[in-house]
Structures are given as C-alpha cells and as structure tokens.
Design a protein around this nucleic acid. Structure first.
Length: 290
DNA sequence: GCGACAG
DNA sequence: ATCTTGTCGC
C-alpha cells in the first residue's frame, strides 16, 4: 500500500509553484462576459437568426471510500426546457494527482476534458452549449477555479457551482448565512457575494424555500454572472441544478457497480490517468479549437 | 505562528 | 469527496 502520496498526501512546493504559474497563464485567456451565439429563450423572441440555449452539460466525479484514488467521472447533457437527459458518459479511472484546495482542476479536469473531447470527435449533436462544473469559477483565491480552468481548456462556456464556499476576500459561510438571515433578505433567494475589496465574486443562491444552505454560483468562462445565474436558476428542481445533480448521482451509481464488478473481474481495472504532468494537462486535440 | 481551505 | 438512519413535512 504505497499510493498514499498519490491521492491524499503532500505535494512539493515546486509543483505548487508550477500549478500557480499554470493558472496564471490560463487566466489570461479567461473571458468573463457572454461570448456565445445563442440566447436565453426569454419568451417571445422569435428571432430565427439566433439559436436558443438547448443543451446544458454537467460534470461531476465520485470517489471510492476504500481507495480514494479510484474514481468515476460523469458528463451529462440535459435538454432545455424539459431537463430531459439526452447524453451521459462515464470514465472509470485511477487518479495520481492529489486534491489540493485551490487546485482542484489539476486533479479533475483531464478526465472531464476527455469526456468532452469524445463528444466532439463523434460530432455528437448534443454537445453542450454551456457546461456546469461542480466547483467554483472565479470565486477562487486567485480568481481561477476549476470551472474557469475547464472552460478555458475546452474553449467552452462554463458555470461554477459550489456546494460549499471557498473562503475568499473576506467572504465566509457564516457571513453569507448572516446576510440571508437579515430581515431585509429574509425571503431573498439570491445574494451577491461582494468581498472586502469590493469585487463581486459570485452569488449565493437558495433554490428552494426549504434548503437553508445556499449554493455558490460564479463565472466560469465565456459567460457573465447574470447569464450564469439565470441558467442555474432555470435548471434547479432541487438545491443542486439538475445537470450537476444528475452527473453526481450517475457517477456514484456507476462507481458502486464497478466496485462490485472488480471483485469478480480482476481484468477490469480502472484506467490509469497518466496526466500527472502539468504540461500535458491540455489535451492536444482541444488546442485546435482556439 | 495559527487557522481556513471548492471536491 | 466519503462515512450514514431515521425522520419531519408536503
């Protein structure tokens, strides 16, 4: 048993430095405004000249409790406005990159990019027009969370959706809860997350009347906070927006089934994720999309 | 120095 | 992320 450092151990200072530099490089390509041809079908805009948002994707990963390096990544695509599932795909794999707060993308983005790339290669008609990521966008210590990271590498509009707040610029969960508690916000389901610096990092959102705990929405890539929030809102049947909720449930189920399969079929092992190297984080085929 | 720290 | 049963309410 020696894969300790692989999935939960420490990381060298030099590697962290490389990761920060990589984030800074990719951040230069970040687009924080609406940069897409489609429109959010408001109501009576029957302009045929522009397409409307129809396919929203979602990605999430689940991990094995026995071996935290074994994981299942899932990509789903839902059709609007029905929220019907039109695509789902999985990747059962072994990760060799640890989770380090602030560097989630280096662990999860490679396999998620592969799932997206597969759809492109197949010219799948359901390729998502926008993707929701289970992690933050610019609501991040260096303004470049996993949703931004994935968006830039895939050159795809992305939205960051966090179930917990990553404390940034003085923002913290108790503070957000306090804001929601204020009588003036008592029935408010959205609050803007403004940090000590005065910058707006995202919004806290209580989708349903029952859930007291908010989710945190922030700009990922090629989208404004306004549009990002509208899309999240229109896909929320429960606390977590459907694209992410579906990816979450399905990755978890897929992982469970494969755990059982593994006991009987030693031949079916999770594929190794050989993407430890920072420089190879950018899947080559995707570069052509720039 | 100490604590906080998405998934 | 994962560990986990029941339980309160529509």
């Amino acid at each position: 048993m020696d894969e300790e450092g692989a999935s939960s151990g420490s990381l060298s200072g030099i590697q962290l430095k490389n990761w920060r530099e990589e984030q800074d490089r990719l951040k230069e390509k970040l687009i924080a405004y609406d940069d897409f041809p489609w429109k959010l079908s408001s109501s009576m805009e029957l302009r045929e000249e522009s397409e409307t948002l129809k396919y929203v994707g979602g990605v999430d990963m689940s991990f094995s409790k026995e071996d935290s390096s074994v994981a299942c990544a899932c990509l789903v695509v839902l059709e609007l406005p029905s929220l019907r599932l039109v695509h789902h795909d999985f990747s059962f794999l072994r990760l060799h990159v640890p989770y380090v707060p602030g560097f989630l993308a280096f662990r999860e983005a490679p396999v998620l990019l592969q799932l997206l790339q597969k759809m492109r290669d197949d010219q799948n008609p359901f390729f998502p027009q926008v993707l929701m990521v289970d992690g933050n966008g610019i609501l991040h210590p260096r303004g470049f969370g996993s949703a931004c990271h994935l968006g830039v590498l895939a050159h795809l509009p992305t939205i960051g959706v966090g179930k917990n707040l990553h404390h940034v610029d003085g923002l913290n969960q108790s503070e957000v809860r306090r804001l929601f508690q204020l009588k003036e916000n008592e029935h408010e389901q959205v609050i803007t997350l403004v940090g000590n610096s005065g910058l707006t990092w995202g919004v806290g959102f209580r989708p349903t009347m029952s859930s007291l705990k908010p989710i945190y929405v922030s700009v990922g890539h090629r989208i404004s906070l306004d549009s990002a929030f509208k899309i999240v809102k229109m896909t929320c049947k429960y606390r977590v927006p459907e694209p992410i909720r579906q990816a979450d449930m399905r990755s978890r189920a897929y992982l469970q089934e494969h755990q059982l399969t593994l006991l009987k079929e030693p031949g079916l092992q999770p594929t190794d994720q050989v993407t430890c190297d920072v420089s190879s984080a950018v899947l080559t085929p995707l570069i052509n999309m720039y």
